[in-house]
Structures are given as C-alpha cells and as structure tokens.
Simulated scan of single mutants.
Amino acid sequence: MRWTQFLTLLLAAPGGAVVRFHCSQLVVERLDPLVNPGSIPSSHVHQIVGGNAFNATMDPAKDLPAESTCTTCEFSEDFSNYWTAVLYFRAQNGSYKRVPQLGNNQFETAKAGLTIYYMQDAIYDQGQKSKVKAFQPGFRMFVGDINARTLTDAARSRQLTYVCMDTWTSRAPETMAFPTRRCPEGIMTSLRFPTCWDGKNLDSPDHVSHMSYPETGTFESGGPCPASHPVRVAQVMYEVVWNTKIFDDLEWPADGSSPFVWSFGDATGYATHGDYVFGWKEDALQRILDAPCWFDTKCEKESNAKLQSIEAMNNCTQKAVVDEDIDGWLDALPGGFQADHGHNAA
C-alpha cells in the first residue's frame, strides 16, 4: 500500500488503530545488552534510540524512566530502547563506509533514528476494533535471525522487509533481500515483531520464545494466537530510512548484486533484526493503546500523552562508550566482520 493511500484511509477512519511516532538517534556504537549483555564492545555496531539510560547490561530490575534523564522519542514518557544493526556500503576495493539514516516521512528534521508503530489492528483497518495489553516493566524481545543467509532462513521471522524508495512516500513493493538497484530516495527497512505473548515471561533465554506469531494467518488478517501464547499484544514495527543514494555515483558490483552489508557481515539482507526493551512510564502506553489515536494525533488529548518537539528529541544524546572508528572508510567492519554472501542465497 502506498503512503498516500494509507493517509487517505486514516483520514477517513472514525477512530484509529495505529500509533506512529519517531525517535531520534541516541547513539551509534557496539553495545547490545540483549544478545551480548555486559560486553564492551558487543560483536557488531548498532544504532539505538530512546531513553538515555541505555547501557551494556540493562538490568531488567531497573526502572528505565527513573534511570533516564531524557528520551529521543516524540512521546516524552517513552524511555524504552529500540535498536537495529547498522548498514554499510562495500566499495569495489573491499573497504566499508557506514550508511547514514534519514528522518522518516514527516520527521525530516529529526536526527536520523527510527519510526515506531504500535498497532492494535491491521494498519489499514477502519477504526479501532481491538483492545490489546501493553507490555510490562522488564519486558524485552528480539526479532530476526542474525545467521539467516537464505530466503528459507529469513521466512522463519515474518515480515522483515525492504523497500527501494522511488519517492519519499514509497512503501511498496517489499522484498526480503537487499534491493539490487539504485534507489532514488534510499532504502527503507521495516521490522514487525510477533504479536502473541505467553502471558507469563517478560523475556526468554533467546529473547524470542516467549513471543509467537499467530497460529494461522497473520496479525493483519486477525489470525488467532496459539494456545501456548494466548495473550494478544500490540504489533511493534520499526521503519528505518537509509540514505543509500549518496553512494549511487560509486561503482557497484558488476554481477548485479547489492553493495550493501549489515554491520555483522550479512550481504544478503536476510538477517536483518531488531531489539526492543520496554520502558514506558507508568501506564502511559496502555492509555495510548486504549485511546482512538492515529499516528501521534489525538493521542495527546485522548490519552493525556505528552509529546515533545523534534528539537528536544534531537537534544537527547549519549556519548559512545566504545572508542573506535565506525564512520571512516574501513578495511573491515567494526568487530572484524567481512561481507558474507552465504551459499545458495536464493
């Protein structure tokens, strides 16, 4: 669905089923308190947004709103942390350069970062139909497979996609592998998290098993949750716009493959992934989910949510604790990774 069509549906709807807001970039560095807790540095570079209490350990017993002094998110009561790996361009001489991010549609002046969605119903539904439970303090989850190098591998994690943006509002078609042509407005990655919770565990050893996709169908089609994960929660989705167009004038691979690679070496695109640590203040998220919001409009009034300016979002920053070059032309990716195209990466 094109962005203009989506906007038309939202404006025609009597109520809303989707909350959309932006979070500016907090820091870019090698820290990952979910997959590599306590490791300084972690294995590969990430871009992190949200509350400035982010650290290498992220003790689940800590109160993130109390530990933070600011957040990069538009909702000023959201001290959660959201992060993904970082995209690099691989030149024909084998060197690497980090791909910067852009502020998403309607947030062009934001300092890079992610756009976050919390969806009670399918993004195209007319009006709010469902009531979903907000996550609780200590909740965290992961989506994707860092080792995926084939379409079969990637299919185990649903709806992690790319859009080659021909215009600033492009949202289709979606692919599961890196686009292989030059994209006039950059590449957008979308990561959709599972929406069925076991109702018991705030986390699991792999950060995945306490969550599930619907037993049949999808979140969008209203598929039922499996008996093992009976609690339906909001669908969390990230959108990230990568400014790949600044590399359009450089030489690309002669075989027609993509020149882009994730910070952990994946050159197929199949291993995209995201991390989430809940940190909303008190009942702020539940109030928003219960209100007839669409995008960030009406939320402030209907749920008594507090919004902050893009300038305030941009002013919340964190100094990287890992001192290394992640932005120059590098002989290898930080952490020593090289581009990995896998085998038979169909």
Rank of each mutant, 00 (worst) to 15 (best):
A17M: 11
V18E: 05
V18K: 02
F21H: 12
S24G: 13
S24Q: 06
S24C: 08
Q25F: 00
V27F: 03
V27K: 01
V28T: 15
V28M: 05
R30C: 01
L31A: 10
D32R: 00
D32W: 00
P33A: 03
L34R: 05
V35I: 07
N36E: 15
N36G: 11
P37N: 11
P41R: 14
P41S: 13
S42F: 09
S42A: 15
Q47R: 14
I48Y: 14
G50H: 03
G50R: 02
G51H: 04
A53M: 08
F54T: 05
N55K: 02
N55F: 08
A56D: 14
A56Q: 14
T57C: 08
M58R: 06
M58G: 04
M58Y: 08
P60I: 12
K62L: 11
K62R: 13
L64T: 10
L64D: 11
L64K: 14
L64V: 11
S68M: 10
E74K: 15
F75I: 04
E77D: 15
F79M: 12
F79G: 10
F79Q: 09
S80I: 03
W83T: 00
W83P: 01
W83C: 00
T84Y: 01
T84N: 08
L87M: 14
Y88R: 10
Y88I: 08
Y88S: 07
R90N: 10
A91Y: 04
N93M: 05
G94V: 08
L102P: 06
Q106I: 14
T109M: 04
T109H: 03
A110G: 15
A112R: 15
G113D: 13
G113Q: 12
L114K: 12
T115R: 15
Y117F: 14
Y118I: 05
M119E: 12
M119I: 06
M119P: 00
Q120S: 09
Q120F: 00
A122E: 06
I123Y: 11
Y124D: 08
D125V: 11
D125F: 06
D125L: 07
D125E: 15
Q128P: 04
K129W: 03
K129E: 01
K131G: 05
K131Q: 13
F135R: 09
F135N: 02
M141H: 08
F142M: 02
V143W: 00
V143R: 01
V143G: 00
G144C: 01
G144H: 01
